[in-house]
Write a protein that binds this DNA or RNA. Structure first.
Lengths: 169, 169
DNA sequence: ATGTATGCAAACCATTTGCAATGAC
DNA sequence: GTCATTGCAAATGGTTTGCATACAT
């Protein structure tokens, strides 16, 4: 990994944040941040927990949650709540800004580059609100599903098997 | 309410959906849809449940969840998962498109008109995906909270007996 | 008549919380 | 030495599930 530079950078930033807010600089906090910045895509609490155990770094889930809150607060991490029991996080630096295409049929989440829809100038226009970050969720039907749906409808107009579909969460 | 027309429209659409998917047309389902389309802004399961009880329509929460799943599936309702324990829904028709300002501190959700950031032309550019709708979630701190935070910090720096000043690194 | 949909209550599970022990300051 | 932070385990609370009953077809 040659993102050592980035990892040091965010460590410094976190350090500053902790200082300003008079929070303690515990080894756990830095280890967690470092783990996160060794990952590239989305991650959830469970995978983070396991990845830390894998490297023989013992942390409790409680600490993980505490630390993530701090990282969210200082903007080093972003949280996506895709469903009631599906929260995903991702680091903010070293990741390109992207939108999320969520298929309403199969629930698949695809990332797509955005053309910086929401410019800093626009962000400032919002009254009485300090923007930290934003997420764009685009809901629709992916090509796989729109094809499957056509097939299904064709079939239904002939047969009568319905079957409940619980994928749309 | 003079949205009778809209309410009939969506009822028809729901009816069609139920027919195609061979689901039963129960009174509960139509009552729930109608209640939803009598509301304008966001709602959550609890408020929906209570609003139905208020009109002496007894439904179980389980049925509410089942029905909402159907309504999501057929696109008559949209779900916003603002946090692990905070899901909000809203009807899709008869609501202007808007962005969501979510306060990371108190969880308040404010709506703000968007300047049509995501134009139909841009939507078509997305490959292999049919856009139904999109949601923009803007996370940050509302004015109330940022004010409260200042107060809190000020108070802490008085109360604290640590005597640390900011000269150190 | 058949089997889906409902209602209830228990189960689920990610997240939060209370509290004693630890360790950063 | 203090008190924030950690770790553990128990609690929380929206959502899901299992099962008996009701009812749309």
């Amino acid at each position: 990994m040659d993102n050592v530079k980035l990892r040091n950078q965010v460590k410094e930033e976190f350090m500053g944040y902790l200082t300003v807010h008079k929070h303690r600089k515990t080894p756990e906090r830095f280890a967690i941040l470092d783990h996160i910045y060794s990952t590239k895509g989305h991650f959830d609490m469970d995978s983070l927990y396991k990845s830390m155990i894998d490297v023989n770094f013992r942390v409790s889930r409680a600490t993980l949650y505490n630390t993530i809150d701090l990282l969210l607060d200082c903007g080093l991490v972003v949280k996506h709540q895709f469903g009631a029991n599906m929260a995903k996080y991702e680091r903010t630096y070293g990741n390109e800004n992207h939108d999320h295409l969520i298929c309403m049929s199969c629930g698949e989440v695809r990332e797509t580059k955005n053309g910086d829809l929401f410019t800093p100038a626009q962000q400032k226009k919002i009254k009485k609100f300090t923007v930290h970050y934003y997420s764009m969720y685009i809901y629709g039907i992916c090509s796989k599903c729109s094809h499957a749906k056509k097939m299904q409808l064709r079939k239904l107009s002939r047969t009568s098997t319905s079957g409940r579909d619980k994928t749309g969460k």
